[in-house]
């Protein structure tokens, strides 16, 4: 299977997300772009660079919120979360690389709500690979690729960003 170019997918997401940043928008109303460590953060970084909003890029490390924490544990090498101190009534643009089971997004949303109560969360995903285990859908998708349960797509990076496909016994979320 030929995998799409990450660069083109990021351009596509950026184009779609521009509508959330109209030119007459006040700084206070500007959405906050937030990437999920590690792959989602790389994508969010590129989109943040392209859109260049006045709000800081946020980072989520969801290891403390995973529902499989007792099996997976912590990742002390992954950077900790950093999010603007006040997200109340803000629009959050949540970005991840691959949407699979939906559990990562659930964990990320749980964490976001511990920072405050956003007005809205918009989910943008580079690759939707199917295989949802909970009812979560993305608002903006770079590309949908239907994979079998034993297949595993991963974003490698940070430089260059590229997708790899592996067949593994266990599926991951």
């Amino acid at each position: 299977m030929s995998l799409p170019s990450v660069e083109l997918l990021i351009d596509k997401l950026t184009e779609a997300l521009k509508s959330y940043f109209p030119s007459d928008q006040s700084t206070l109303e500007q959405p906050i772009i937030v990437g999920i460590e590690t792959g989602g953060y790389w994508v969010a970084e590129a989109i943040h660079r392209a859109i260049n909003p006045s709000t800081d890029l946020g980072r989520l490390n969801i290891s403390f919120y995973r529902d499989d924490f007792t099996k997976k544990g912590l990742h002390p090498t992954v950077s900790p979360s950093s999010l603007s101190s006040n997200i109340d009534d803000k629009t959050i643009i949540l970005i991840d690389d691959v949407l699979h089971s939906g559990r990562t997004i659930r964990a990320a949303m749980n964490e976001i709500f511990d920072y405050g109560r956003p007005k809205r969360i918009v989910l943008a995903i580079l690759i939707d690979r199917g295989g949802r285990e909970i009812p979560i859908q993305a608002d903006i998708v770079g590309e949908t690729i239907a994979l079998k349960s034993g297949e595993h797509i991963k974003l490698q990076g940070p430089d260059p960003l590229r997708l790899t496909l592996k067949s593994v016994g266990e599926h991951a979320g």
Binding site: K72, T77, A172
Partner: peptide, 15 residues
């Protein structure tokens, strides 16, 4: 406390 409850993060597999 969290290291006792969870697996060692050094061997964890990111997904």
């Amino acid at each position: 406390m969290s290291m006792i409850v969870g697996q060692s993060g050094l061997r964890g597999d990111e997904s």
